[in-house]
Structures are given as C-alpha cells and as structure tokens.
Nucleic acid binder design. Structure first.
Lengths: 208, 208
DNA sequence: GTCTATATCGCGATAGAC
DNA sequence: GTCTATCGCGATATAGAC
C-alpha cells in the first residue's frame, strides 16, 4: 500500500472514531461535520475526501458493525433451530442480542436518530422492526410447526419481543461499551436478561 | 370575548390543526414553521404571535392531549388497584393504552422525535420510560405485596411492558386516528392486544 | 491528500405597515 | 392581530493553494 493511501486510511479511521465519540456525546443529529473533523484533528474539507455526507459516514459505520457482529455471531448461531421454550436457550438468545447492543450502542442509536429525521413512510416502522426480528420469527415458526401453541402470529410475537428488548436497551445501556451500571436504575445486565427471560417465557402469571 | 380575541383563538386553532397534519405528513423534525403557516393559510409572522417556537407549539398540543386523555380515563381508572394477573383486567389496561396511542399518534410521535433531537443525557431515556410506566409499576407492586411472585423488579417489568406496547404502537398504528388496518402486516387492534395480553400473562410457554 | 478560505443556502426570527 | 419583507445565523459543501 502506497504512503498516500496509507495516510488516507489513517485519516478515514480517525474520522470514524471521532464520529463515534461525537455521536455518543452530542447525539447523531446534533453532531456537525465540523465537530467530527475537529475531534479527529483534521480540516473540514478533508471530510468530503472520504465521505459524501454524514449519512454516508453512518452507513460505513453500520457496515463495519455488521462485519464484526456477523463474525462474532457465526460461531454462536449454528444452523439448527433452537427451542425458545427452553429457558437456557431463550436466555442465551436474549443475552447475545443484549451483548451486540451494548457493544454498538452509539451506532445503533445514530441509525435510530437518523430514521426519526426522515419523513415517515407508511409501513416503514413495521418493516424495520420485522426485519430486525426475523430470527425470533423463524424460531417461533419452527416451534409452531412442532405443534406448540403460541399466543399469536409468530411475526407479531417476534416483533413484540424485539420491541421490548431494544427499547430497554436504549433506556438502560450506556454509550460506552464497558461502562459500569449507572446508579440510577442500577440494574445489572444479568438482572435485566433474567427478568426479560422469565417474563417472556412464563409471563406475569409465573411458572406453572 | 372580543372580536379580536376571537379571531386570535381561531388562528391559534388553525395553526394547531395544521401543525398536526404537517407532523403526520412530514414528521416533526422535517416540518418548518412556514409549512405550518402555509397549511393554515396564515402568514409566517403570525406564528410568533401565538407560539415562541415549534417546541412551544408541541408543548401546547401535548397539554391538549393530556386534558382530553385525563378526562376520558378518569372514568375508566378508579382508585382501586387492579389485578394484572386477571386476564380481563390486564387486557382492559393494554387496550386503554392502545386507544390513547391510536387517538394521539401524531403528537406522541412528534414528542418522540423531539426527544431524539436533544443531546443525550445519561439516564434520560430510562427516566422517561419509567415515568410513562408508573401505572404498570404501581399495579405490580400491589401484586407483589399480595404475595404474588413476579419475574423481577416491578419498575423493570413495567418498563418492559410499556416498551413492548409503545414500540409496537409506533410500528403498527396509522397517523390518522381512524384509518383502516394497513394491508402490510394487516393485524387488527384486537389481534395485537390479544397477542400482547397472552404473551405478557402466560409467556411463550403458554397457559398452565 | 490535506489544508484554509469562502460561497451558498435554508430557515428561524423580527420590523414595521395596515 | 395579521400581513409583507428582510435580516442574520448556522451549517453544508466547494475552490484552489500547498
């Protein structure tokens, strides 16, 4: 790799890292291009050598995340469908999702903020939620095929589960991947995952 | 009421109604002051005679909503705590919340968009979620005091329930209060509420 | 490839006539 | 109270030197 290309790669990485920090501090929508370049120690104009816009940068960050998450999950999620009515397996699924959210909170929040700024298209919110919860839906459909009686349509239940988990994540997870539990609500990761697991498995009525 | 004050009230109402329509069409963040005045058939400058800013207008719309919702719920929600492990009572609660969301989707979405645009304060998301779900928490604490075993902390469970419900509402409810069910997912209100009720009461494992 | 300097523009907000 | 006209700021994006 030539020296010029190498410097370009360094600058691009610096911009990405700075953007991540700024998004966590100010929020995606409040972050200006100049905030990012300043935090990266670069000039304003350099930004456009690497990204066409703030949205473009976000897309790049999201791609990076998918690459990492795909690699780390490929081992955990093998081909065989899991039984979500088995407490250990359900808990493992929820814990894995929680870990991914914790590790990527700034990007996920930024994507979310970005989507809120776009003009609302009918059905767009459902489409996103459904797409983000296909894994749940597939497992539930498998369960139903086995003869298990579910409380409703698999896609709807999967969406409901994902809705609960992701919204709790936004409310409870810190922006820094490995920050300690905040004193405010003070729930530990295990506490949250155990509660959600039992709530989703046995409901308010409790274990039979 | 004098003729001048009366006209002022008319203009203010027209601005509010126009804002509601514009928020539903373009989203709160994308709506400019001039969009609102144009849709209301008024001049740009007239806006500031009634509201200090777009945020101020939103606060007024939210106050209107609370007034209406408070009146309509005062009959339904009496002082006595309900038993959320009774299916009919749980379902009634969820259905009431769903109706309020359906009737006020544009305002609720606007408030949400507005909160996403603000710089993120640690604990703010949790504080909002917790505040919006105090009713659930209170009922759950009552249940626990009765000796019922819950899957976790009442505030956390209440937040999880509210998270599921509100996110599903944003994904499924139309912007117009009485629009028919969209063909896309195609779930009816009853279908959604029944599914959520059974999922929250008995979980994936199902009724004992 | 990176820098400084600047053009450009959308939009919130106000001034002043009616 | 409502209108027309305009000011001024903040932020994106580009031009051109190094």
């Amino acid at each position: 790799m030539g020296v010029r290309k190498e410097q370009a790669a360094q600058t691009q990485a610096a911009l990405k890292a700075a953007a991540l920090r700024q998004f966590a501090e100010r929020g995606y929508l409040n972050t200006k291009i100049t905030d990012i370049t300043a935090a990266a120690g670069r000039a304003t104009g350099s930004f456009y050598q690497h990204f066409a816009s703030k949205e473009d940068l976000l897309a790049a960050l999201l791609a990076d995340m998918h690459e990492q998450a795909g690699a780390s999950l490929s081992g955990a999620e093998d081909g065989a469908p899991h039984d979500l009515t088995d407490r250990d397996q359900l808990r493992a699924h929820l814990a894995a999702a929680w870990r991914v959210m914790r590790a990527n909170r700034p990007v996920l929040t930024a994507v979310y903020e970005s989507s809120m700024a776009a003009p609302p298209a009918p059905g767009a919110s459902w489409a996103r939620l459904a797409a983000d919860t296909v894994m749940f839906r597939d497992h539930l459909e498998y369960l139903r095929a086995q003869g298990h009686v579910l409380p409703g349509d698999p896609a709807l239940i999967g969406a409901a589960m994902g809705a609960m988990l992701s919204t709790l994540g936004f409310a409870l997870l810190p922006m820094e991947p490995d920050a300690p539990a905040e004193p405010e609500p003070g729930y530990s990761d295990d506490q949250v995952i155990d509660t959600v697991t039992d709530l989703l498995l046995y409901g308010l009525a409790g274990r039979p």
